[in-house]
Each structure stands twice: as C-alpha cells, then as structure tokens.
Design a protein around this nucleic acid. Structure first.
Lengths: 207, 207
DNA sequence: CGGGCAACGGCAACTTCCTGCCACACTGGC
DNA sequence: GCCAGTGTGGCAGGAAGTTGCCGTTGCCCG
C-alpha cells in the first residue's frame, strides 16, 4: 500500500506509465526542480478528458524561464495555479494514487507512493482546499507583473548589503514602499527572514 | 601598457607562461571560483626561489573543499593568508605585471592587465599593506575551527527562517551568543546584511 | 590555591526592520 | 466635476536584530 522510492529517476521509471494513463493529475511543488520537469519534457498531450492541475509557489514566477514554462503549460490546457502557502511536493493520480516527497537523503529525494483510496481521499481533500485559495496563473500573473519588473533591481540592492534607507533612495522609492516591495518579494519567495530570502533568491538564480 | 582581457579563458591562455616564469606571484581573491582554480590544477611546483602569496576572504574556509585546497597549497609552500577585509581580485607577477578583475559582463569577467612598473609598485604597496593585516592560514584556521564546527547548524537554522529566539534555543545557545556567532559568520562571509549573507552562503554551497 | 583568561549569557541602549494607519495624489468611469 | 479604487510615502509603535558592558563560570597555569 505504501512504497518508498529512493530517487527521482526510480520514481520516474516506476510511474511514467501511470501518468500517461491517468485521466486526472494533480500536483504541487515549490519550484520546477522536480523530476517532472528536470528532464526534456515529453510534450504534454492533453486529450479532452484529461485534467491536469499544477500548483506552485509564487517564487517560480520570478525566474523568467520557469515563468515561461508555466505559461506554456497553461497554453496547452494544464490548470496552473499559484499558491500563497508553503506546500510540500505532492502528486495525485486519478484520486487514487498519491506520491509524497519525503526527506532529502544526500542529494536525492525520497518519495512515498501510496496506492490507496483512503489516503488518496484525504490528500485530495487537502489538495482541493489549497487549490481553492490558490490563484489561477493568469490572474496571479497580472497582479504580479509589477513586482517582477522591480525584482531584479530590488534583489540587486538587497544582495549588495545596503540598508533600507540607502536602497530605497537608490531605487527612488520611499522607505515605506521599498519595504513593502521587499515584503512582497519575501512572500513570493516563501521566506520568513531576509537570510532565508537571500538563500532562496540565490537558489532560483535571481542574483 | 593596459590591456583588457574579456574572459577567464583568454586570461589563462595569455598569461599562463608568465605565471610559470614568474619568481614572485601575489594574488588576492574573494573565493576560489577563479580561473586559477576552476581548471584541473596543474600541480603547483615550487622551486626554492619562487614565492607565491595568496590572500582570501574567511568565507572560503567555510567550504570544506575550498579549505582543503587551501591547506594543500599551504603544504606545498604557498603563503596563504586570510584577509579580514573585502578585496578585489588582484594578481601581481614579479612586482611588474598587474592583473585586476573588472566588471562582470554577462557570465564572464573582464580583466585588465597592466605591464608597468609604476602601476605594479602602487598596487604592490596596497597589496603588502593588506597582506600585513591578514593572518597566516594556520593561525587563522585555529581561531576559526570553532565557528566552522558550528556553521552548518547555524546556517541551517538561519536558512530555515526561524527568528533568533527560536534558533538560539534550537542550538542550546543564549540569544546573545547566537547572535555573536551570526555576526562572526556574516563577517566571514563578508556580508553586511542577512540577506546578503544568505546569498553568499548559498553561493558557496553551504546551504 | 589564587590569578589570569576566555567564553557565555543576561541586560540595556541602540539600530534596523516591519506594519498598521492615514493623508495625499493619480486614474478611469460616470 | 465627482467618486471610487489604487498606489505612495510619512509617521508611529512595535518587533527583530546588533552591540557594548559586565558579572559568572570553568579552565589552565604558576
């Protein structure tokens, strides 16, 4: 009922056929560095009766490449939403099979695969709840455009180590507004401290 | 008298023979991601009359691989010192040829090569001054051992976004001491804000 | 044993950062 | 023009982070 898979490769090998066969796929991830997207993507083919939902953190929109990929998905009919909350990597197939990302063991991540209607029901409920509060990509993207335009310069001054006073002047912003932007950026990055924000920003290659 | 070299590769191609011939080499760098070390290193051979000085920021000692490399250099007779101050990448050959790192253009760095006794004299003076206040690797490393031992856990809690209060408890430290450690870490990373520290830490692959 | 000596951690003063509140300016629709 | 909606930035009060100071503790050495 519950199997542990030790690496992304193994998971891919083991479940690729399930993905192909599934008529409903729901997944959530913090970023795009997952097995699903790390390989040259098989062009997603959507027949009318297949529903794919994907949920991400706002941070991915800060990376132009990732953002482009998301829009591409959106284009071909995948439901893409942006979740304001932290979410663990989760995949649900046909409300039946659940895959949860687990510990990072060394460089590879472990996954737990459940083939159980009960587990699937519970997890689906949670997923749906998260899905409801998440915004559709296009909606979110519109409200996000502004921040994304400012982000590069914002990240630059942040990474340069200047203090808010200086940084705000640099960007011709009031200190208040500057901080508002920083707060938004941190939310987008899912960071609760500036240190963490720095790490995440670097992780996403934004600085 | 002054030549601009557009990339690290070009610099390497152009100056490798100078390095081989030089009897005195002095260089400074923030980290080890420089052309000198990015390639499979030609085993440095030191004949008795060749003097090599290298100066780095404390941050490099936080990365075990880099630290090991430094000690290796030290072993074969290179004078390695750790500078408490920010230093731009600088190379001086035989107090005659000076190479200064310049702007980052896209992904590659520009270098400026001077072949002038005057320039070399000035720069050498500054280099020597910085050299004097820098600590020999072994000395520094001893005083640094403690922080390095703590650093991984410190970075972990920092990167987890917890606030000092929580983090200190996590590490069984007083808040005061915790912050002392954070301050030391930031100094080691050459960071003046926690955001910057996060970026640097991630850059060095410490988180 | 007593006297440095270094690390610790509490305290306090200070700086930096965060955020709610509000007045102000700008904009688009009526 | 008027009005609602939105973004801005000052201000204030509070939270978080930074630093000097100092008493305490444990340790090494004479």
């Amino acid at each position: 009922m519950s199997t542990i898979v030790r690496s992304e490769e193994a998971l891919f090998a083991r479940t690729a056929h399930l993905f192909a066969a599934a008529s409903e796929v729901a997944c959530a991830a913090d970023d795009l560095n997952t097995w699903a997207t790390s390989k040259p993507r098989p062009r997603p083919q959507l027949h009318g009766d297949k529903r794919i939902r994907k949920m991400f953190r706002p941070g991915v929109l800060l990376d132009p490449r990732s953002a482009a990929h998301l829009h591409e998905l959106d284009q071909v009919g995948v439901d893409v939403r942006i979740s304001p909350d932290e979410i663990n990597e989760t995949i649900i197939l046909d409300r039946r099979i659940v895959i949860l990302a687990g510990e990072l063991v060394g460089a590879t991540r472990e996954f737990r695969v459940f083939d159980s209607a009960d587990v699937a029901r519970s997890v689906s409920t949670l997923y749906d709840a998260a899905w409801r509060v998440a915004s559709p990509l296009r909606t979110y993207d519109r409200s996000f455009a502004e921040l994304r335009a400012l982000a590069p310069r914002l990240l630059e001054v942040l990474a340069s180590g200047s203090k808010d006073e200086t940084a705000a002047r640099e960007l011709n912003l009031g200190v208040r507004t500057y901080r508002r932007r920083v707060a938004e950026l941190m939310t987008a990055l899912g960071a609760t401290s500036r240190f963490q924000a720095g790490v995440r920003a670097r992780e996403l290659g934004l600085v």
